[in-house]
Design a protein around this nucleic acid. Structure first.
Length: 863
RNA sequence: GCCCGAGUGGCGGAAUUGGCAGACGCGACGGAUUCAAAAUCCGUUGUCCGCAAGGACGUGAGGGUUCAAGUCCCUCCUCGGGCACCA
């Protein structure tokens, strides 16, 4: 019989709600240390909670409950990132107002989260679509605007026809929208843009001190893409203008043998000579017609000669100017100097079009391939400056210095990061606090008129123009100039979904403040976030944008820390149960999986686990060992039909089982396949605990009042030590394994002493809070699990003690080993074995040394 | 191509960071209980040899450092993730 988890969980969830058990006081306490543990708040989708949500949420909940028990003042809030496309697309289909859909979804999410018993302070719940919330999102926009960090631009931007909106660079992958995978194209449009590039260096430097996954830091570094080099000016032959190029290798300037312009380059037309005009125009035409996606594809580089020449400032040499579409207008200056000897692309291009290759750095086989490594420079001198003999860094420095002195170049830093495109042509987002006067000038809405509320609307169709659906609401659009009272119109674009999530962690500190975004005293007390848990899909989107806004708010004096999230952890993905797949061809014959290419039209057939066996490294059919079978776990998806619904799990096994299982599956950061069998093992563990404490026949307690013996105490205290250390290290899976080990040991005892059971239940409480509360109450305690009762392990029981033990080795060597007081016989034997090992090696020599073996110290004396 | 991360039993995964490889869980096999089943409990479970005591081999492959290597170093292979004409 399973323990009555359903009654227990309902009972304690109600209890916690009624008693506001997890309320964090509004006021900042005088003398209590804080701990801010935060989940990435969810987008409340119509599909409801999936099993991936509780994974991160359980991890943070364990930490929150643990820290509370350690006496910290803990902030553990939850809210809703509720603006965004899906609600609007749903509105389009069903004509339901996004607000209605959103409210319904939030109610569903909240109900599901409460069923899992997370210790959130629901009094601090926030919702990005609430006008009291987005008032401050708009306020932050005004801070950006006033600092010149928000500006309008007419640049080509990513436009997605299907979504009816433009998207940020970060939201477009391979020319397709990140959400939905719809095709996107580059179209020039007037847009609001945030100057994130101005913070590029600070965003880069700030990463150093953060306790974040190295891969995420690396992704942000790559995204920012800082490079150092020089801009160099090449005078143009016969034209009174110069061509500016960016290079990271100014040291190879003497090796430049031609130049290349992007097809969009503004000087191209002027440079092109009449003899080459037709050819160049044809090439440019074709290049511009190619989609961005096609141009991004690497392949054979093509280009044509313009007929123009530029003068290399270091040696006065005239070199030909080409145009080629592998040069991007959006990076650097849209023009490059080509040094074929020392750049792979230039090398390939030069070989193809028979352009000269001039080696200026020694070390490679220049006849064979470009040499990009370091080496002494050669053939690199003019009357004033010589790089000959210098190596990379020194050469760069010398030539840059010379260029600067000559006024023909300068040291330059370049970034791949581009400014953040901030407008969307959608309805369901924050309106901009901006109006336009009749002559087109933009003006901010004064602070005291915030929020600019989102009007109601019945038609959600995107207009298909740079105006959003808001443009159709005449009496909202038409307003007055806040300064002059003259007629004015409102900005009809809305902010992207990222806006609300850029700063929500600050609003949790002071959610009801209508005077300021956050009270400075509270901000200073709580920030930064001590532990932030969420998916790695936000590595460069949310996590970069939020850092940017945070730094702007820092400059504005709103926050006191330079970085918002001190420690970051990405929970891994929970995959579906492992599937075994065989394939059939058109005739129905089974095909071995090793012969299956990705694009075949074979029919996959699911095979039961029992019918599969392992042969060497691969799985095969048990009855037909020649047929190889794919064994993989896939991402959960409706179409695959492998989705696990957390509600079903809670119904059948209880919330504590789900929580515990998701933590037991493996390391938090790792992707892990779901296994219902494994989960049942965790459920069994909880049942055992129940029976260890509760006499299931009488309903009374199964614990005794006998004093625990030394062995029992040792087992308990080792468990306390291990679990505590594991929680600190966020190794929740091994913490649970340690508790399982404890229960295995306790099952063999004649009685379970109360003095052992009570601390164990406390130890369990962050993991399985409902069961723990119930057992605690059954022990006869009036209060719910008291924080000060968290068990401390007794050092005395696991302290090191020195025991002398001589080890005889080959009659010549004698070793003394020191072991822990509680070391068992195996430990001693292992130690002796290690000592013996070393002794053998030292045999006959006269050395004294110390070596370390598991938990013990060996003092070895030879002679 | 470049940058991260990872390869350990039939499966998910442990291993105090260089010290008894396989904790804990699942599965499997055997047993107890039961009229029977479920549930529960007790064993066994890396591979090979051996009746046994015991022995040999074992952490993707190959080399190396060390008394001692899953862990450190070099070369390579495979799988995930990210970036990708960035001058």
């Amino acid at each position: 019989m399973a323990y009555p988890f359903h009654d227990i969980e309902t009972k304690w969830q109600q209890h916690w709600e009624e008693h506001q058990t997890f309320r964090t006081p509004d006021e900042v306490p005088e003398d209590k240390d804080e701990f801010y543990v935060l989940d990435m708040f969810p987008y409340p989708s119509g599909a409801g909670l999936h099993v991936g949500h509780p994974e991160g949420y359980t991890a943070t909940d364990i930490v929150a409950r643990y820290k509370r028990k350690q006496g910290f003042n803990v902030l553990h809030p939850m809210g809703w990132d509720a603006f965004g496309l899906p609600a609007e697309q749903y509105a389009l289909k069903t004509n339901t107002h996004p607000r209605e859909t959103t409210e319904k979804n939030i109610a569903q999410f909240k109900r599901q989260l409460k069923r899992l018993g997370f210790s959130y302070d629901w009094q601090r719940e926030i919702n990005t679509t609430d006008p009291d919330y987005y008032k401050w999102t708009q306020w932050i926009f005004l801070q950006l605007y006033e600092r010149g960090l928000a500006y309008q631009s007419e640049e080509p931007v990513w436009w997605c026809e299907e979504l009816g909106t433009v998207l940020a660079n970060e939201e477009v992958i391979d020319g397709k929208s990140e959400r939905g995978g719809y095709p996107c194209e580059r179209v020039p449009m007037r847009q609001w843009v945030l100057k994130i590039t101005e913070y590029a260096d600070r965003l880069l430097e700030g990463l150093e001190a953060l306790d974040w996954p190295e891969s995420t830091k690396q992704m942000q570094r790559n995204w920012i893409g800082r490079s150092e080099g020089a801009n160099v000016y090449f005078d143009l032959a016969g034209i009174d203008d110069s061509l500016e190029v960016y290079t990271t290798r100014p040291d190879t300037l003497f090796g430049a043998t031609y130049m290349v312009l992007a097809p969009e380059h503004e000087l191209l037309d002027e440079i092109t000579t009449d003899a080459h005009r037709a050819e160049v125009e044809a090439y440019v035409d074709e290049a511009l017609r190619k989609s961005e996606r096609k141009r991004q594809q690497q392949g054979e580089k093509t280009g044509v000669f313009t007929g123009g020449y530029a003068m290399n400032p270091v040696n006065g040499e005239e070199i030909p100017i080409w145009v080629a579409d592998y040069v991007l207008a959006s990076y650097g200056t849209g023009a490059v100097m080509a040094v074929p000897a020392h750049d792979e692309r230039d090398y390939a291009f030069a070989r193809k079009y028979d352009l000269p290759v001039r080696e200026v750095v020694e070390g490679g086989e220049i006849e064979e391939e470009a040499y990009v490594g370091d080496g002494p420079h050669v053939r690199s001198a003019n009357e004033d400056v010589s790089l000959n003999g210098l190596h990379n860094e020194a050469a760069k420095e010398a030539i840059t210095e010379w260029l600067e002195a000559e006024g023909t170049g300068e040291h330059t830093v370049n970034y791949q990061l581009q400014d953040w495109l901030f407008s969307r042509q959608r309805y369901w987002g924050e309106p901009f606090p901006i109006v336009f006067t009749e002559d087109g000038e933009d003006k901010p809405v004064p602070e005291d008129e915030l929020p600019v509320t989102l009007p109601d609307i019945d038609v959600f169709e995107p207009s298909g123009t740079p105006e959003g659906p808001l443009a159709t609401i005449e009496d909202w659009v038409h307003t007055t100039d806040p300064e002059t009272g003259a007629p004015a119109t409102r900005e009809t674009n809305t902010m992207p979904q990222w806006a609300g999530s850029c700063w929500y962690y600050l609003r949790f500190l002071d959610p009801d403040n209508d005077e300021r975004l956050v009270d400075p005293e509270k901000e200073e007390y709580w920030m930064p976030v001590d532990l932030y848990v969420g998916g790695s899909e936000h590595a460069v989107l949310h996590l970069l944008y939020a850092r940017f806004w945070h730094k702007v708010l820092y400059d504005a004096g709103v926050v006191s820390t330079k970085e918002p999230f001190q420690t970051l952890v990405h929970q891994g993905m929970i995959l579906g149960e492992t599937e075994y797949t065989a394939y059939r061809d058109e005739e129905g014959n089974v095909v071995s999986a090793e012969n299956v290419a990705d694009d075949t039209d074979l029919t996959p057939v699911q095979v039961d686990e029992e019918d599969v066996t392992k042969d060497g490294d691969v799985f095969v059919l048990a009855d037909r060992p020649a047929v190889q079978v794919d064994a993989r776990s896939h991402k959960m998806s409706k179409s695959r039909g492998n989705v696990i619904n957390p509600d079903d799990v809670v119904d059948e096994y209880g919330a504590d089982t789900l929580r515990l299982y998701e933590m037991f599956m493996g390391p938090l950061e790792q992707d892990k396949p779901w296994s219902t069998d494994d989960m049942e093992g965790v459920h069994r563990f909880l049942n055992r605990i129940w029976r260890l404490v509760v006499d299931t026949d009488s309903g009374g307690l199964a614990v005794s009042d006998e004093e625990p013996d030394r062995d029992q105490l040792r087992v308990l205290h080792r468990t306390i030590k291990k679990v505590t250390e594991d929680i600190e290290a966020r190794d929740f899976n091994t913490a649970i394994a340690a508790m399982m080990e404890f229960v295995n040991a306790a099952n063999k005892w004649d009685t379970m002493p109360r003095k052992i059971a009570e601390p164990f239940v406390l130890l369990l409480s962050p993991f399985a809070p409902h069961l723990s509360e119930e057992l605690w109450a059954r022990f006869g305690h009036d209060e719910t699990l008291a924080y000060e009762d968290w068990p401390a392990y007794d050092e005395a029981l696991i302290r090191r003690e020195v025991v002398e033990m001589p080890v005889q080795v080959d009659g010549t060597v004698r070793a003394t080993i020191e072991v822990e007081a509680d070391a068992d016989e195996d430990d001693v034997l292992a130690t002796a074995k290690a000592a013996d090992n070393v002794a053998r090696y030292l045999d006959g020599t006269d050395i004294q040394r110390e070596i370390y073996v598991p938990g013990q110290i060996v003092n070895l004396v030879t002679g």
